[in-house]
Design a protein around this nucleic acid. Structure first.
Length: 289
DNA sequence: GTTGCGTCCTGGACGC
DNA sequence: TGCGTCCAGGACGCAA
């Protein structure tokens, strides 16, 4: 399930191939989750960014001659836009080599949207469980995407400090793991990396308050596990593959997530597993207490 | 404003 | 073999 490292891996692969391309045509699965995809038609892609788990594809309207229209030149119609893609649990973006061939031969049951580009290729979005989402918004206007609108700092942002994390956790009464998954204290953490970061920091996922020392350790752990996830191309447990169809390798490095009943790599205690606020959670009862 | 639960959705695992 | 049930998960809506 794509979290920050998986989305960042895909972003890095797509960016050099998409920037400068024009969107000629599009199709979307008939669902409110995907039906904004064709709104990107008639735009040139200006950049491929990311915030948390959201992929943000910058768009600029094109004139009849194919040239981009500068923002503000001709009024509101020409406002820069963003194609926002959230991969949900099973979403996958890929570039087909030949748009016409792909369109004719790929009636894939999990295809949710595609965009054909002016270089003959086609960007496709597959999503088995339909937990993903596509939106086209005015640049920076995320009113209809509340989680994106209130996203916490990026893990590498200077604003993401131990003191910030401690304040965010302690001013509410949520369990620390549930708070991390809310995307408010820091952007991009999902169930896998939350378990890993809490294990690495020695923080009990059930706790509702952090000391300064624990908050500092957790902040460092969140940064480290996400960076390492990016370095290893993401974590593939079942469905995730990157934009080139390759699985990540970070799953071979997990210390905690999905290892309930096995020995803790740090203290040899048997790891516990339980549902915590409706999320499967694994932790060490000895070194996370 | 905050918390916690239910819902969406489908493939795979498992039990009978 | 076939059927039914449960589980996994991120975002969001809603009741308390």
């Amino acid at each position: 399930m794509p979290e920050l490292p998986e989305v960042e891996t895909i972003r890095r692969q797509l960016a050099p191939r998409l920037v400068g391309r024009s969107v000629l045509d599009s199709w979307a699965f008939p669902s409110a989750k995907f039906d904004q995809a064709p709104t990107a038609v008639g735009h040139r892609i200006t950049d491929v960014g990311r915030r948390g788990k959201y992929l943000l594809i910058g768009l600029r309207p094109q004139g009849a001659d194919g040239e981009s229209i500068a923002v503000g030149d001709t009024g509101e119609r020409d406002e820069a836009a963003e194609l926002v893609v959230h991969l949900g649990m099973t979403g996958r973006l890929a570039l087909d080599a030949d748009a016409d061939h792909a369109a004719a031969t790929d009636p894939h049951p999990h295809l949710r949207a595609w965009w054909s580009l002016d270089d003959g290729r086609r960007l496709t979005f597959h999503d088995i469980r339909r937990f993903g989402r596509i939106a086209v918004v005015a640049a920076g206007r995320y009113d209809d995407l509340p989680t994106l609108a209130t996203l916490g700092p990026e893990p590498d942002d200077d604003a993401f400090t131990g003191e910030w994390l401690r304040t965010e956790i302690n001013r509410r009464r949520r369990r620390v793991k549930t708070a991390l998954l809310s995307q408010r204290p820091v952007a991009g953490v999902g169930n896998i990396y939350a378990d890993e970061a809490l294990w690495r920091a020695g923080v009990d996922p059930r706790s509702r308050r952090l000391t300064r020392a624990a908050a500092g350790r957790l902040r460092d752990a969140v940064r480290d596990v996400l960076r390492e996830g990016v370095d290893h191309g993401g974590t593939t447990l079942r469905d995730y593959v990157d934009a080139e169809g390759a699985a990540g390798t970070n799953q071979h490095r997990l210390d905690c997530y999905g290892r309930a009943g096995q020995r803790c790599h740090r203290c040899d205690t048997t790891l516990r597993g339980a549902m915590l606020d409706a999320r499967s959670t694994t932790w060490c009862p000895t070194c996370q207490s």
